[in-house]
């Protein structure tokens, strides 16, 4: 599973072009989603992908511009609400690096509350079966078989 959401891609375009596609709302709409984004620190904007199957989500991403360094970095908060109305937070960071024949674009999406728990997810892959087996030894053999399966 994903431990951190990070994508690095090279585009054969000047950094100015890539920056435009990240910061001009009409251009963002072409590849990401329609939005009222403006490259101004403190500006609040939204994306509305609608509800998604199987996700406890109200259909809107609530964002706020946190940092703008033209042609270099851009970051915004990326918050989402569960259907019960509780807010979950995360942050999207874009880093542009000028290369000889184009631009390297790095996206890091992090800061989820759950992120701090990732070491436990990792422990659980081998660890979970072990804990369950251990507990099951005290229970009936059927449960032990299930836990070992």
């Amino acid at each position: 599973m994903a431990k951190i959401i990070q994508h690095q891609i090279f585009y054969p375009n000047p950094v100015t072009d890539v920056w435009e596609y990240l910061t001009v709302s009409e251009l963002i709409a072409q590849w990401l989603m329609p939005t009222d984004f403006k490259p101004v620190v403190g500006h609040e904007f939204q994306f509305k992908p609608g509800c998604m199957d199987g996700c406890d989500f109200d259909g809107t991403f609530y964002c706020k511009v946190l940092e703008v360094t033209p042609y270099k970095t851009l970051s915004y908060s990326w918050n989402f609400k569960s259907l019960s109305g509780k807010l979950n937070t995360s942050v999207v960071n874009w880093t542009l690096t000028e290369k000889d024949n184009g631009t390297e674009l790095l996206l890091v999406h992090r800061g989820f509350e759950g992120e701090q728990m990732l070491p436990i997810f990792n422990l659980m892959n081998p660890g979970w079966a072990h804990h369950m087996t251990k507990l099951s030894e005290a229970l009936n053999p059927e449960t032990s078989l299930t836990a070992n399966a």
Binding site: V18, Y21, W31, L32
Partner: peptide
């Protein structure tokens, strides 16, 4: 989600 969107962005830039 991001893998898909960045691919789209790549196509546009191309």
């Amino acid at each position: 989600f991001w893998a898909n969107k960045l691919q789209k962005l790549g196509n546009l830039l191309n």
